[in-house]
Computed example of a mutant assay.
Amino acid sequence: MVKRQRDIQLHFMVSPEERGMINEKMASIGTKNMGAYLRKMAVDGLIIHLHTADVRELVRLLRVTSNSLNQLTKRVHETGSIYGEDIEDLQKSYDRLWGAAEEIMLRLAAI
């Protein structure tokens, strides 16, 4: 077995709070070897950067859909009737909402 040679030293500073978080994460995976842990995280660690524009669009669609449903419900209570066009509009709104949610989930699954 060939022993790895590590002759380059890296150095960085952390705050006491960051050190505590590192210790907690090390404890959660059952390791006490900080060098091995930091090396593994630096080499294989995963950074996830979410683009919130997609989530904001999903929230916007949810608001539009909720508003449409509330207006439709109010009209039904006032008139006692519902129109097919209203149902179609609501269905289209739900389709856009679920389409956006599915797109976001597919992108997250690809991470």
Results as ranks from 00 to 15, higher is better:
His51Asp: 15
Leu46Arg: 11
Gly45Cys: 03
Tyr37Leu: 12
Ala53Gly: 05
Arg96Trp: 02
Tyr94Trp: 08
Gly20Ile: 01
Lys40Ala: 12
Glu17Phe: 12
Asp89Tyr: 02
Asn67Asp: 15
Met105Thr: 01
Phe12Gly: 09
Met13His: 14
Arg4His: 05
Ala27Gln: 11
Ser81Trp: 00
Glu78Trp: 08
Glu57Leu: 11
Ala110Val: 06
Met26Asn: 02
Val59Ser: 12
Asp95Cys: 02
Arg56Leu: 14
Val14Gln: 09
Asp86Arg: 01
Lys25Thr: 10
Ala42Phe: 05
Gly84Thr: 05
Lys92Val: 08
Glu17Arg: 11
Gly99Tyr: 07
Leu38Ile: 03
Leu108Gln: 03
Glu103Lys: 12
Gly35Phe: 05
Lys74Phe: 02
Gly35Asn: 15
Arg6Ser: 14
Asp86Ala: 12
Thr79Met: 10
Arg4Val: 01
Arg4Lys: 11
Arg60Ser: 09
Pro16Cys: 09
Gln5Met: 06
Arg63Met: 06
Ser66His: 09
Ser66Asp: 12
Ala42Met: 03
Asn23Gly: 11
Ile22Ser: 05
Met21Leu: 15
Ala42Leu: 07
Gly99Met: 12
Ala110Gly: 10
Gly45Ala: 05
Ala100Trp: 09
Glu88Phe: 12
Gly80His: 05
Glu78Arg: 15
Glu18Arg: 04
Leu62Trp: 09
Leu72Asp: 02
Lys74Ser: 06
Glu24Pro: 04
Arg75Leu: 13
Gly20His: 13
Asp89Ile: 04
Lys32His: 13
Arg60Lys: 14
Ala36Cys: 11
Tyr37Cys: 04
Gln5Arg: 12
Arg56Trp: 08
Leu72Cys: 11
Lys32Cys: 02
Val2Ser: 13
Gly45Ser: 01
Arg56Glu: 14
Asp44Arg: 01
Tyr37Thr: 03
